[in-house]
Write a protein that binds this DNA or RNA. Structure first.
Lengths: 271, 271
DNA sequence: CGCTTACTTGACATTCTTCAACCGCAGTGG
DNA sequence: CCACTGCGGTTGAAGAATGTCAAGTAAGCG
């Protein structure tokens, strides 16, 4: 107890950062001041049961949600019960549901596992961005990354076979989880059922099962007991054309340069 | 000639607005001042040949592009030549390629027909937004709409059959083209080949052909000579579950209320 | 007229879905 | 301790959806 209190006071550096801070650190250089603000930002986490809605379809949400622990997703459910997962939301991800369209959310946000989430009041995000330009930059980049992933999924649906889609998803999850310290160089906890994977990839559960066996049979992956491990990561990446470009975009290595230099370069380019 | 000059001076109201202004008017109330600024914004249009790239894959684009006439698209091309169209860009659409990820564009922007486009310098967009908050609001809503469409495509790929996907695409194009005055209540010019439709829907050209015949055979559509007409629009919409919600989101009816009222309401909601 | 491009059609192969059953395991209540 | 139950994973067989290959048609255009 005492030790815990001590650590919560002392360890203000990266060691004690939550997933949100770890993720944003990848996109911009954050000062201690920035990190403090972010830590306060997600100070009162809530708990979400597994398979419950954080934001329902049709809601007009107030503010955003930060996933701190657990897996969640954006999804769209049809009248006949079938649903399509649109994106996985991992620890560190912010669902910034600012300014949804008239009529409310066109999709829902729901947990897949038990989650701890931080609720974000709508105004506080704007204030945070104004007071902390580096944070604002990181948030924008994170948003661009989310869009890039969505485009990548669409490409996958149009152009990739079932095993390739799964392989690509695993590569994506590996990189994104590594970015928040939840994966080793080739493995991570995957608390999803094959049905979940099917809803994300647009495949039937049975076909997911068979495609996984294809990947296992090819010596590319190992997936048992909710643990994923890439046996042959290079092979896995090449079979689905997972590009380092895409990787860099969704989870760049920790930002080291003051990004003002980057911005300056961008402004010089045009004239 | 004289008459033309006269009209260009006199008709500053909606009659002479270009597609960009017409579209943004749907998302926010624009003053004459706003419209003037937008008109200047796209003052020097360029011409793009059919089937040429406006922004290539890997480019680090400077500024954005406004489509003024013609059809363009975002697409991703693979090494084997197959490509996936990620979105159609119609007159009035702004490809705001601000802040792309490291390594440049993960997809290309190319024309499908001959296009006239306006190039937008990166800085000028920010200035415009600062000086014209209503324009900024409209631009943000347009962006949200674009994302909603992308999500809708993903849902379509995962959950809808080939004829349904085509039907949904037609409904989307109808609504979007209506928003810029390029469609009647049930018809529009569709300058796309069946191969284009296939690349957009993730279907082979042959299957697009057969699915179109299904739709024609069901008395839902008519598609000849690059002219689309919905014979039974209600039926077409219901067969693909095209929702008025989605419709409202991608092209709301022309904004009539001062949107400050809307914003105010949003702010009241929380807290 | 001959060329090209887009559309159409038929036959066949492949991919994927559906239905149904079974297995193994963990929890649960008797 | 055991039977029961439910869930997730696995398997087989049949059928639907979609892709591929190949050929033919129609319209536009130099």
């Amino acid at each position: 107890m005492l030790a815990q209190m001590e650590s919560s006071v002392v360890e203000l550096d990266s060691r004690s950062d939550d997933a949100f801070i770890r993720k944003l650190s990848r996109f911009a250089v954050l000062s201690t001041h920035d990190r403090d603000a972010l830590a306060r930002f997600t100070a009162r986490p809530q708990l979400g049961r597994a398979r419950s809605d954080l934001v329902a379809q049709g809601d007009v949400p107030d503010g955003g949600i930060v996933i701190l622990e657990g897996f969640a997703c954006r999804y769209r459910q049809q009248a006949d019960g079938r649903r399509q997962i649109l994106a996985f939301l991992l620890p560190g991800d912010l669902c910034d549901v600012e300014g949804v369209s008239p009529g409310g959310m066109d999709h829902a946000i729901g947990t897949l596992t038990a989650c701890t989430v931080g609720r974000v009041a709508p105004g506080s995000l704007k204030h945070l961005a104004l007071d902390h330009p580096q944070v604002a930059l990181a948030l924008q980049k994170a948003r661009l990354a989310e869009e890039a992933i969505l485009r990548e999924w669409l490409v996958g649906f149009g152009l990739r076979s079932a095993p390739q889609r799964l392989a690509h998803l695993f590569c994506e999850l590996l990189v994104r989880l590594q970015a928040v310290g939840l994966a080793t160089s080739d493995s991570f906890d995957l608390p999803l059922t094959q049905a979940d994977l099917g809803e994300a990839t647009g495949l039937s559960t049975v076909h997911v099962n068979r495609s996984l066996q294809t990947l296992r049979g090819a010596g590319l992956i190992q997936l048992t007991n909710r643990k994923f491990r890439a046996i042959n990561l290079a092979g896995l990446r090449s079979m689905c054309a997972f590009s380092s470009l895409h990787e860099q975009c969704i989870a760049p290595s920790a930002a080291l340069l003051p990004s003002s230099a980057v911005l300056g370069a961008a402004y010089v380019q045009h004239s």
